[in-house]
Write a protein that binds this DNA or RNA. Structure first.
Length: 504
RNA sequence: GGGCCGGUAGCUCAGCGGAAGAGCUCCGGACUUUUAAUCCGGGAGUCGUGGGUUCGAAUCCCACCCGGCCCUCCA
């Protein structure tokens, strides 16, 4: 939609004209910065004197208090803030007047002068030169801050959730705590990468555009290559490609990247989200559990400096070893239902109805078990917990437990009542895998939206021989939620998906 | 897909059937050590959108749009 300037924006456009009439370029090409805001402040402190070196600092004008022949302001750059002190003695009354006439909060400016302490002891640039670097035409939300008993109190913070997400640039520009969230996010991801690299994993990249999707039960996004006249899917997981690489004789591979699932959105689901998956030859799911708890604890150490974190009022200890409990036992403890004694969908649904459930009549046995987990167990798993050994019929890629054809060697891990990841001892018998794909086809209605397509190329790869291996996937965004103490996945995505508005 | 709550000035919000308001922002003025600067004066709005009820609607009713929360869904 075309821009229709508001009154405030009209005023700023007029100031822009005034600058140009005065022969000033409101968007100059070059700057002469010598110090960041933080460097300027520490440069003064390092002198040990009450006057420091001459500096030129650049940044966004955050506050401006003009009082006749003097003025105070703050500018902010990526390093922090520094106060500007204007005095007619140094810079002349016309310049102080021009602060009011030409400048607005939000403008990028450059200020040069000597570092001094003001009467209240605040390190400040005693401004001797001053100029615009970039005019801000639209006013950012004004956030005022002051200290009360050492506590920073903020006024009129930009807090409308919808506008914060739609205009994340404005959110970031006015809310420093939001900037910190994404710094932490970056540190979580590099900590994960560092851990995987140190454990001998090779980072790889596999196709996002896939002719056959797989590795998870989710509806895909579809797209099309015009020139090849080929329908394609955006991947819902990396799994089947990463395991092909084990056939290709990489012992340990991992990928951090984006998955796309065409499903509902919620405080823990976004249509595109970041996943870490790894696959390692010659280990089983027990060893994957060891790696998992070490990985998360390592991220905690690197990001929070300790393994104990605070999340939404809970104190969570991420230090290994984590509790390991079977899915059967965990459901029995919470519901009194031993699903092994209800081996058919009908008998399990009956048992569930006795305890006040209304199970969906079309659900498979495994889906019923999974819903018991999600409803009765998952919300209680605040401390990190591995739930181990899942029903076979909801785990088409996991190896069956020796001596127990109804269960597979699979675990999910939970922290703060959220499912954080999923892993198993991988099927490496191509004939078994083919049969499992076919079983999935039978168990799920072929028209079902989450039916699992057969991936013949994946089976071909496996027929060349795949080493025994363990695989793992985790939702990186949810890990970031944990380490930033955010309740919604949208708070840890820079640009979360929102429905578009007609008028934008 | 269902339920509840919300959308009023640039920002944060009040008003909930009888002349659209407050604080901050903004504009004009005063002020040579301020920091939510202060003081004086002045602007600023399709009250989410479209219908309806009414003498009169930001306010009541209906539909729709967008968001939040909770369900549903999500191996």
């Amino acid at each position: 939609m075309a821009w229709e300037p508001t009154d405030l924006e009209q005023q700023r456009l007029q100031k822009l004209d005034r600058l140009r009439s005065a022969g000033i370029d409101p968007f100059p090409h070059r700057v002469e910065r010598t110090h960041t805001a933080a460097e300027a402040v520490s440069a003064l402190a390092e002198t040990g004197q009450d006057k420091g070196p001459a500096v030129v600092v650049c940044g966004r004008l955050r506050s401006l208090r003009t009082m006749g022949k003097i003025a105070f302001g703050h500018i902010e750059d990526g390093s922090g803030r520094v106060q500007l002190f204007f005095r007619a003695n140094e810079i002349g009354s016309p310049t102080i007047k021009s602060l009011e006439q030409h400048f607005d909060l939000g403008d990028f400016v450059q200020a040069g002068g000597e570092m001094i302490y003001t009467r209240t002891g605040e390190p400040s640039v005693l401004v001797q030169s001053f100029k615009i670097l970039a005019k801000s035409l639209s006013p950012l939300p004004i956030v005022k801050e002051h200290e009360v008993d050492g506590q920073l109190v903020r006024h009129s913070a930009f807090s409308d959730v919808e506008e914060r997400y739609r205009q994340r640039y404005a959110d970031l520009a006015s809310n420093p705590d939001v900037r910190d969230v994404f710094r932490t996010r970056a540190r979580v991801i590099s900590a994960l990468r560092r851990f995987m690299d140190n454990e001998g994993f090779l980072e790889v990249e596999t196709p996002i555009l896939q002719p056959i999707y797989g590795g998870a039960a989710a509806q895909p996004f579809t797209t099309r290559h015009n020139q090849l006249r080929q329908d394609l899917y955006l991947r819902i997981s990396f799994e089947l490609y990463l395991k092909r690489l084990l056939v290709g004789m990489y012992d340990r591979v991992y990928e951090i990247g984006r998955d796309f699932r065409n499903e509902g959105v919620s405080f823990k689901h976004n249509p595109e989200f970041t996943q870490l998956e790894f696959y390692a030859a010659y280990i089983d799911y027990h060893e994957v559990m060891n790696l998992t708890e070490q990985m998360v604890a390592s991220v905690a150490e690197q990001v929070a400096g300790q393994s104990i974190i605070q999340y939404q009022g809970h104190t969570i200890n991420l230090a290994p070893p984590w509790k390991r409990v079977s899915l059967r036992q965990s459901i029995l403890e919470r519901t009194g239902i031993d699903y092994v004694e209800c081996p058919t969908p009908e008998s399990l649904a009956a048992a569930m109805r006795e305890t006040g459930h209304q199970p969906s009549p079309k659900s498979s046995w495994g889906k019923l078990v999974d819903s018991l987990l999600g409803t009765h167990v998952e919300p209680h798993l605040i401390q990190p917990t591995f739930i181990v050994d899942y029903p076979r019929d909801i785990s088409p890629l996991a190896k069956t437990k020796p001596g127990d054809p109804t269960h597979v060697e699979r675990f999910e891990f939970f922290i703060a009542g959220m499912e954080m990841g999923n892993a198993f001892t991988e099927i490496n018998d191509p004939l078994d895998q083919e049969q499992r794909f076919q079983e999935m086809g039978r168990l799920y209605d072929p028209d079902a939206e989450d039916a699992h397509p057969m991936d013949d190329d994946y089976l071909r790869a496996m027929r060349y021989g795949m080493p025994p291996c363990g695989g793992f996937g985790t939702g990186v965004d949810r890990l970031v939620m944990l380490f930033t103490n955010r309740r919604s996945i949208r708070e840890v995505l820079l640009f979360p998906h929102l429905r578009s508005r007609e008028q934008q």
